[in-house]
Design a protein around this nucleic acid. Sequence first.
DNA 1: ATGACGTCCTGCCTGC
DNA 2: TGCAGGCAGGACGTCA
Length: 310
Amino acid sequence: MPELPEVQTVVNDLNKKVLGRRITGVWFDTPKMIKIIFADKRGFTRKGNGFQRIFEKEIKGLKIKNVKRRGKNILIYLTKSYKLKAISYILLIHQKMTGHLLIGKWRIVKGKALPLFKGALSEKVNDYIHLIFYLDNGWQLALSDLRKFAKVVFGPKEEMENLPELKNLGPDALKKSFKVEKFIKLIKSEKRKIKQVLLDQGVIAGIGNIYSDDMLWQAKIHPLSKASQLKANQLKSLYVVMRQILKMALKLRGISISDFRDTSGKAGSYGDRRLVYRREGEPCRRCGTKIERVKLGGRSSCFCPMCQKN
DNA sequence: ATGACGTCCTGCCTGC
DNA sequence: TGCAGGCAGGACGTCA
């Protein structure tokens, strides 16, 4: 499930591979995944499912200007010129758990995308292609998603920037201007358990289940500890390990223990280095105690009962 | 305000 | 070996 390091890996790939390309066409088989936000000729903003033809028509001919990340969202900035003016759009993609953005070549046979060649793209990933953007250099940008949870939203730049899923995001976990003082203030003001707070994108953007487990283990904090009751030195160390772990995972191109792949279908290598995530029953890397798992909400959290006292 | 649970979806794992 | 049932999980909605 892509979190900040995985999403950033994809964004970096895209900036290397698709900048300046023009979209010449689009194919998709799961309209449900796609939403558009669009002002019609009379100025009405229309939102919702059911406008796929407008999506097709509007995205054709747009040029890829830039690719950015906000939290776990991928933002592809697109432009066209109309009457000598540049009009900007954003294509937002959230990969959720099993979404993958891939660059390759496919052809549609009986409504299904088949790879023209495999290369590093495993067959498995190819089985779940649901959306393809055709680019003007012959390559294609595809979205694969086993569980069809991924979300794609398209619309004019200004309206996209006002989407609650972007506007309500907290500071980005790796943003330079996000300092330890601000971090401590944010966490201190939360009455929930620390694990839930870390997963809340409205508090801090970019962290998911994997890295929050590893961060808490590294900082020796129990996942069920009340956020507001954590001591300043604990929070300080949590901030430091948050940065360290995310940066290291980004360097290793993410974690592929579930099924994350980069845009050429290659796995990341953080999985071997992971600290506690999905290591229930295995020995703690510090003290050898068996890693345990607790559930909160619908999420599970792995921790060492010896190192991480509540 | 908080938390617990349901929803979406489907491959995979467990147990009989 | 086969099949049924449960699980995982990000974000969001609903309900107590």
